[in-house]
Simulated scan of single mutants.
Amino acid sequence: MPEATEACGPIGGPTGALTVGQAARRLGVTVRALHHWDEIGLASPSLRTAAGYRLYTTGDLERLHRVVVYRELGLGLDRIRAVLDDASADVPGALRAQRAQVAERVDRLQRLGAGLDRMIDAHERGPLLTAEQQTAVFGPEWNPDWTAEARRRYGDTTQWQQYAERAATRSPEEWRAVADAVAGLDRALGDAMDAGVEPGDPAANDLVERHREVFASYFPLTREMQVCLGRTYESDPGFAAHYDGVRPGLAAWFRRAVDASARAHGIDPDTASWR
């Protein structure tokens, strides 16, 4: 007869003894767990019916209850066996050691929770900086509302997710380093234009590569994506004003430099897309 009958059907036995199904329900464990504990000799029933079905006495249930408690505390089955069967076992010591492990796990989960909170905040609002900190890091022309606008436009993209992942772990000092790198690149672009460097020249190509490296602070930038950014720098009034504020005509110069570099890498700037 299958074990399911043992777990469910009423089986004659001494008054007060429980079938494996009844014991499992009372303890809040599975029948499979009771079978396993019986098979390994951790907690076996004292009685069997004439048909061979397990019957658990009050004493059996007391031992099972201790097994359940210790298992919920995180002790392994071998450790539980030692605690229950070894009269010389240092039960308080075992429980203290387990408590220390639980405390470490709680601390780890709390840190994980804090990290998740930061990740959620970063996905929702970008840099985890106050408006004052953003102004101090990015300069007086920075508008904290720009991040909200970027999230509105790009919040469902992979690039925004990558940006948020970086923002979640970045300190104000690290953001300042990013801002300094961007400002340094802007100066280098302006100096190259002043020096008569032409798009496609080695010096211009080096600056295009430097732009990709600096931009990686936000998210990885492919060459085709860089071409799309170059278009935006020239066509978007806000970006164009920024670059042309560094040097008049710089937005158009940089767009041409990016296009020339793309061609050198086998990419047609006219058909490049955000990928």
Rank of each mutant, 00 (worst) to 15 (best):
A177D: 10
V182H: 14
E174I: 06
D180S: 10
G155L: 03
A204E: 04
A179N: 04
Y154V: 02
R166W: 03
A148F: 11
D156Y: 14
E198T: 13
Y163G: 00
S171V: 08
L185E: 02
V178G: 05
R166C: 01
A192K: 01
G196A: 08
G184K: 06
D201G: 07
A167D: 05
V197C: 05
Y154N: 08
P202R: 14
L189N: 01
A188N: 14
T147Q: 13
R170E: 03
R166P: 02
R170D: 01
R170G: 00
A204R: 05
P172W: 09
T158F: 13
A167Q: 07
L185T: 02
D180H: 12
R152G: 09
G196T: 08
G200S: 06
P199L: 04
Q159D: 10
R170T: 13
D194W: 14
D180V: 06
E173L: 13
D191R: 14
R151G: 04
E198V: 15
W175T: 00
A188M: 11
Q159H: 14
A183I: 03
D180N: 14
G190L: 03
E198Q: 15
T147I: 14
A192M: 05
A168G: 04
Q162G: 05
Q162K: 08
G196I: 06
R151S: 01
Q159F: 14
A177Y: 08
A203S: 08
R170S: 02
Y163W: 15
R166N: 01
D186A: 14
Q162N: 08
G155Y: 06
R151A: 03
G184I: 11
D194A: 14
D156I: 08
V182S: 00
A183L: 07
D186S: 12
P199I: 03
V178C: 04
A188D: 11
Q161P: 00
E165M: 11
A192Q: 01
V182T: 11
R152D: 05
T169V: 11
A167P: 02
W175M: 00
